[in-house]
């Protein structure tokens, strides 16, 4: 409980948004990959986020250790905010576009090549959304830092 919590929450937001940006970059980089490790065309990936409750924190861990029950430290209260975490990275199962290109090494018997189901416009929108959300988290972090600095000035 305290300002360090809000810094940790913002930090979890930063890493979640960074992962979204990484995944978007991977999608864009593989927009033309007609063959993955399994021989199938690349499938667009997206990140599923979920909110988490606080994992106790230092004060609760200390209280649990003093009461002689260290197992109680990891319990999630749920009521206190604890940031965000990545629940999963899922593959988009919509079928990819098929184009006629008999000369392509991955063309099927009819001469059609299945392209990845990546739409660069969607990826761009996702990229901007992740980038703006990242900025919002840094702003929250900045505010918490200013508040903390101001409190420390009381000691001067």
């Amino acid at each position: 409980m305290g300002l360090f919590d809000s810094l940790a929450i913002s930090a979890s937001g930063l890493s979640a948004e960074r992962l979204r940006m990484d995944v978007t970059a991977e999608n864009l980089a593989n927009a033309q990959s007609t063959q993955g490790a399994d021989g199938q065309p690349y499938r667009r990936k997206s990140v599923v986020l979920q909110a988490v409750g606080a994992q106790g924190g230092f004060a609760q861990a200390l209280a649990a250790a003093q009461s002689g029950n260290p197992e109680a430290t990891g319990t999630s209260t749920g009521a206190q905010p604890g940031g965000v975490e990545v629940a999963a990275i899922v593959e988009d199962q919509t079928p990819g576009k098929r184009v006629y290109n008999p000369g392509h090494p991955d063309a099927d018997a009819q001469g059609y090549v299945t392209l990845p189901n990546v739409d660069s416009v969607t990826e761009m929108v996702d990229l901007i959304s992740a980038s703006r959300a990242y900025e919002a988290n840094t702003t929250a972090m900045q505010t918490a830092k200013q508040m903390f600095t101001k409190t420390l000035e009381l000691l001067r």
Partner: peptide, 24 residues
């Protein structure tokens, strides 16, 4: 009030961290 404002800061940070979480 300082405790309250610090707790509110955590709550608002949580909201921004989950700005892209479905169903949040």
């Amino acid at each position: 009030a300082l405790h309250g404002a610090a707790a509110r800061q955590s709550a608002l940070s949580q909201n921004l961290a989950n700005a892209n979480t479905a169903g949040y």
